[in-house]
Simulated scan of single mutants.
Amino acid sequence: MYDGFTERLADMVVVWSIPIILVLLIGLSVIMIIKNNKKSHPSINNRSLQRLNEQYAKGEIDDEEYIRRKKEIKGL
């Protein structure tokens, strides 16, 4: 019922779909590992912002200084 070309085409689809799926799974795994790694290690900006918030809460800096430093930290 099937000619040789159709059978070879079906075989090629099956054979090539496996490596493509594996590459996609590896890529997704790498992306997930990178995202989880960023979440588990706070960045320097987050630590700086946390320290700035603590200084502001203790009254060590005024409103203007807080806003100025916060903009510098966020890079605005």
Score class of each variant (00 low, 15 high):
A57N: 13
N36K: 11
H41E: 15
M1G: 15
R8P: 04
D11S: 15
N45T: 14
Q55D: 12
V14Y: 14
V13M: 00
K71Q: 09
L52G: 03
N37E: 13
I21D: 13
V30F: 05
R47Q: 12
I20C: 10
S48F: 11
D62G: 06
D11W: 15
Y66W: 13
Y66E: 05
H41M: 12
I67D: 14
E65C: 01
N46F: 05
H41Y: 13
K39H: 06
I34F: 05
L52K: 06
V23D: 04
D63W: 08
N46T: 06
D11G: 14
I18S: 11
I18E: 13
K38Q: 11
L25H: 02
L52P: 02
N37V: 01
S29M: 08
I18L: 15
N45Q: 14
V14G: 02
V30Y: 06
E72I: 00
L9A: 14
I33G: 03
K71S: 12
F5R: 13
V23Q: 04
N36T: 10
Q55K: 07
S40K: 14
S48I: 06
L24A: 14
R68P: 05
H41T: 13
L52A: 07
I61E: 03
G75K: 03
I73K: 00
K39D: 04
R8F: 12
I33C: 07
D11A: 15
N53H: 04
V30H: 02
D3Y: 06
L76S: 15
E64Q: 15
W16G: 06
S17E: 10
R8K: 15
L28Q: 09
R8M: 08
F5V: 11
E72Y: 05
V13Q: 05
I31T: 05
K70F: 08
A57E: 09
V14N: 07
S40H: 11
Y66M: 03
M1N: 08
S48A: 14
V13F: 02
E60S: 07
Y66V: 05
N53G: 11
T6F: 13
E54M: 14
I73N: 06
E65K: 07
L76N: 15
S43N: 10
E64R: 05
L49W: 07
D63R: 04
E65I: 00
Q55T: 01
D62L: 05
N46S: 01
K74F: 08
G27K: 02
E60T: 07
S43K: 08
P42E: 05
A10Q: 13
L22W: 06
V30N: 06
